[in-house]
Structures are given as C-alpha cells and as structure tokens.
Design a protein around this nucleic acid. Sequence first.
DNA 1: GGGCATAGTTCGTCGCGCGAATTATGGTGG
DNA 2: CCACCATAATTCGCGCGACGAACTATGCCC
Lengths: 149, 149
Amino acid sequence: MAALVRSSFLVDAVYAASAREYGLTQQQGQLLCVLMGRSYGMTELGATLGLAKSSLTGLVDRTERNGLVRREPDPRDTRAVRVALTPRGAALVDEFYAETCRRIDELPSGLGPQERETLAELLGRVVLDNEVPVVFKEPDEGAAAGHPG
Amino acid sequence: MAALVRSSFLVDAVYAASAREYGLTQQQGQLLCVLMGRSYGMTELGATLGLAKSSLTGLVDRTERNGLVRREPDPRDTRAVRVALTPRGAALVDEFYAETCRRIDELPSGLGPQERETLAELLGRVVLDNEVPVVFKEPDEGAAAGHPG
DNA sequence: GGGCATAGTTCGTCGCGCGAATTATGGTGG
DNA sequence: CCACCATAATTCGCGCGACGAACTATGCCC
C-alpha cells in the first residue's frame, strides 16, 4: 500500500515544516503538544513519548533553555519533577497546534465532504486495529505517541 | 484530521521497527531503497532524499562502512562518484523492502477488500494533490522522498 | 589558459536517542 | 529505627543525523 507510505511522508513533511516555522524541532513540538492540558513527570513523559528517561532529560533541558517549559518540584514526591508549559510555551503551542491542524486538514482538500468522511472513518479503523496490539509489544519496540494531540 | 496524523505515526513505527530488525537506521534503509534499481551520484542522491550534500557524505560513509553500498568512480566525470549497492546491500534491501511492504500491507487488514481499495484511491488522490505544489516550495522546505520505493 | 561552475569532502556545531552508572528520595520489613 | 530495595532523575559517553561554510579538485567554455 504505497499510498499509505506516501501519505505518511506528506504528514511528516507538514509537521516538520510547521515546527520549523515556529522555531521548534519536531521533538520539541511533540513535547509541547503533550504538555497542553496538564503537566507530566519525567517518567510519565518518557512513557508517553516512547523515549528513554535519559533522552528526555536532554529534550526537556533544551526546551527549557528556550523558555518553553519549566521543571517544577512535585509537592508529593521530592524526587520527582513536574514538567509544565511556561506562559510563552503555552502561547506558542496554541498557535503551533492550531496551525499544524489547519495544514493537515488542508491535505485532503481535493476530496469532497463525503469522501473526507469516508477517509477519516477508514483510517480511524486502521489506527484502532493497530493500536490494540501495542499491549502485546516486545519491550524493544518503540511506540509512536499520538500527535499534535 | 487526527486519523491522518495517527496513521502516519503507525507507518513510521512499522518502518522503523522493520529497519531495526535488519540492522539498519531509517536513513540507511531509505538510502538502500533508493539505490534499488540503479546507482546515483551524490548530488542526485541529495536531491532525491532531500538532504544537503554534507549530510549525504556521512550517511554514505556509514553505510559503506557497513558494507552495504560502495562508491565507484564515474567513468564520465572524474570529480563525480556513483553510489551503488554492494551484493550484500542488494540482498539485504530486497528482504528489507519486501518485509516492510508486507507489514504495511497488513495494517489495513481489518478492512474488507472493497474498503481497502477505497482507502487506496482516496489516499492516492491526497498524495497526488499535494505533491504538485512541491514545485512551488520555498528553498528551505525539506521535501520528503518517496519511501520503501 | 583564465575563470567560473560543479562534485564531493571536511570541519565544527547542534539535536537526538540510547544504556550504564550515579544520586537522592521513598517505602517497607525485620 | 534502619537496612534494603525500588523509584525518579541526572550524568556521561557514544554514535547517528542534519546543517552551513570553507575547501579541493575537476570540468568546461570563451
């Protein structure tokens, strides 16, 4: 199914271009998107993003250096840290997220409303069908985190 | 269209997992796939993969070190180099490519034959609609190269 | 054959991802 | 109460990947 592969590249290119315009790397964009809504501990973030803890330290370091996220002490566990958006990060990710969604939405602009709905339904099922088996996954299989959302 | 984004992650995860099992990085896998069929010059490869020349030198270096590709002198231009698969690289990419395609094909296994065809048709149109504008792209927009193929 | 274009490489810089080792705190059982 | 194991993060060293700028060497053309 070449179309699946090619559409995947399309989406990735859109995401990458959008991130670049907002001065973000794809990973930093992803981090900010995950943090929309609530703060996360480092371990929790690692699980969500499918990264090793040590990878996360660096990602959060760089994003923090850019003033977009902040490490806050966890009131319930002095070992732990809560990673949260700064006001600047929150403002940025709001724009980035909206803009990225807008561009993704435009990809199927050549399709009629009926067709778009069909596409969404079919893809939705493909995604659902293939996310259940994640439960059975080998420990070495990196999982993909949901995106702009 | 969240389904588009999520399916894109799905495909990427499949590609990454497949590459890992064959001892390849995604980039090296991509390089090998492009080289199936014929050899390329470095500049030509850069255009095809959407990479700067300097990025390519390293990628080809590492892949060559692994014995999968080879730099051959270009008979028509002593400055230029032809990058080609070694026998080992050719054998490996045959398997890798076939296996990756097999796995991608399995993603929509929950859909009926009719639905798969519809999905392919719709996605095909989305891809087509969105590859033409590449002609107008700004020089700073990295383009995605077609994949397992 | 002087001068510009083209093909590749080198160099330095950064981001990213990992595992192993480390530090510090939490929790629990004796 | 404290020894001990578990857990939360960080640090370190490694390699891959991507880039731009500077460089070398060859081709090409007037």
